[in-house]
Design a protein around this nucleic acid. Structure first.
Lengths: 329, 329
DNA sequence: TGGTCGAGTGTAATGGTTTTCACCTCTTGA
DNA sequence: TCAAGAGGTGAAAACCATTACACTCGACCA
């Protein structure tokens, strides 16, 4: 049916070993033999069978990507970066969601042992640290965006602490004294870091911070909406609010407008992520840009690097950027 | 290193053939032998090596998904549907973007011949019809959302014509007489169908339609913005505008607001897709819901169905739904 | 009693590649 | 002139599963 290396060898009048050598540009082959083989390869449009190759070499040239869910647009741009990075590397991406189930995540990581994947990018690990670093000892593991620190597992992310600090400081410099934050109840390091940045900016400015000013919830639009409704009822209404994500910030804006107030006239709103959406809403959303494409690209690069043999764990924080649009003043 | 079928066979005191038979629940095996084998399998946590299996059986249990790009949130929910559908089928998703290059798409489809994938879902084919149906003769091909009709290749989509017709008719019934459409210059069937639905709704209502009222562009926010700016300059300003997508509609809304007009006070705006974003903008966007999760699920189901042996091409149009929010009146 | 049949199992070929090892031919240096 | 070494190549094992075919054994029938 399909063309095999035998066929190529036969037509080129060499052994399969030689064809293999030519294709893997490894060993010494006489230039003229190489030419002969290559011309047959091109003529026959031969491509090696990946299964037999993987069977032999114990590598699949596939990188596994595990994220909590696929429906969140935050991830799409990151995936695009990974995909682009993968393109000419000979590797491919196997993308799946774990749906917040550690069991499912464990099952997926089983693909590594089955040699169905050579390495993995985790977008938000649900597994305990010990398990993670055990796997990392055997296979390249890279954490992207969300990560557990100091367990010897590489990660690439942004500096959530500083980013949130800067965004908060910006609002303070702009004259805001009562700032609220619609946060999340999850245990992600990023969430904690952002809250810490928020607090530190207050502390450094000598501003008191009423604990009621931080409300937890989720990363959803609805959560932003509901938290904002509560903030609006506080006796001392905040003059600005930070969303832990753009989507949450959009929820805040909706709540504000539905209460008959205006943004940024009555309240300023700041988001986080710089989704495409941020420039589409009215008013356009001030936010902190995460370089999502580059995050994806870097994550895959780190996996590739380890596949190349590099052993050391890398900890990359890519530059974020405060983007001021029209939802703040 | 890893456990092989030989090892299982040895410990269970049977031949590898028997182990294989147990695992593939095919042939007759004495219940007690089966038990013995299964217990060893569980004890050793044995999972068959996929590469050698694929090498033998010439199937990879992988479904290829090719979309134009990964960064568009329109696709993310569809992917989620595919992923969910795939979950317990034993199949996995290999997702890649073709970046509007037919060459790249062709290259990716090569994975089928290399037995790296058993079937494929195409989210917007760039290949000529003939090539597509040639591939479809050998492997399961399913078109999703965008499709070429009548070439014997299955597809799943929504009824773009009727959907756009209904949305337009809704605006007409609401009293609008001057309706514009921010369309796209591409050649996608969906685009043509939506334009036709738009026109037919006018015709059926006996409304004249100035050709200037349809402007082409792209599927981007900017395109909607720019088209809208032109519409606003027309001597007879439209009282409503339909975007070919939610993102385009959002661009229209921005242009309208930046011109100092209001939505829906001065103009009504209708989108298409019902992205999450639609409920996040102000005013919330009236739109046509595409059941994206179900689209993804159905596409994968069709591939699976053909893999099961079903030969006939299916043409599925899933129900859409007009969703009225606050951008229209 | 001898032959047929079927159920259950094992042997070994098979899939397509990579890679070890052995081989041959030349060159080089002593 | 011969030994050693190096460059180029081929034969065959190995990777790990599936499966066609053969075999054994007991049951059953004529």
């Amino acid at each position: 049916m399909s063309i095999t290396i035998q066929e190529v060898a036969r037509r080129a009048g060499v052994s399969t070993a030689t064809v293999s050598r030519v294709l893997n540009q490894s060993d010494k082959v006489l230039p003229e033999t190489r030419e002969r083989v290559l011309s047959v390869v091109n003529q026959l449009r031969y491509t090696p069978n990946t299964n037999s190759r993987s069977l032999r070499t114990r590598e699949s040239r596939i990188i596994l990507v595990i994220l909590p869910n696929l429906s969140n647009p935050f991830y799409s741009e990151i995936l695009a970066g990974m995909d682009a990075c993968t393109r000419d590397s000979g590797y491919r991406l196997l993308v799946t969601a774990h749906g917040a189930s550690a069991g499912r995540e464990r099952e997926l990581l089983g693909l590594l042992h089955q040699r169905q994947a050579d390495g993995v990018v985790l977008m938000s690990p649900t597994l305990p640290a010990a398990e993670l670093s055990a796997i990392n000892a055997q296979f390249p593991v890279v954490q992207c965006c969300e990560y557990i620190e100091d367990i010897g597992v590489s990660y690439v992310s942004v500096d959530n602490y500083t980013a949130f600090y800067e965004a908060t400081a910006y609002l303070i410099r702009a004259g805001h004294r009562q700032i609220a934050m619609s946060s999340s109840a999850n245990n992600y390091p990023s969430t904690r870091l952002r809250e810490q940045g928020f607090k530190k900016a207050h502390a450094d400015a000598g501003l008191p911070l009423d604990p009621q000013r931080i409300r937890q919830g989720s990363y959803s639009f609805e959560s932003g909406y509901e938290n904002m409704q509560v903030f609006l009822k506080h006796k001392q209404r905040p003059s600005a609010v930070m969303g832990i994500s753009d989507v949450v910030a959009a929820g805040c804006i909706s709540a504000i407008m539905n209460a008959g107030l205006s943004v940024p006239g009555d309240l300023s709103v700041m988001g986080f992520d710089n989704l495409d959406m941020a420039k589409m809403i009215q008013p356009t959303l001030s936010t902190v840009m995460q370089p999502r494409r580059r995050l994806g690209r870097a994550a895959v690069e780190l996996v590739l690097e380890r596949l190349q043999g590099c052993q050391e764990a890398r900890e990359l924080l890519l530059p974020h950027e405060l983007i001021i649009r029209h939802s703040t003043r």
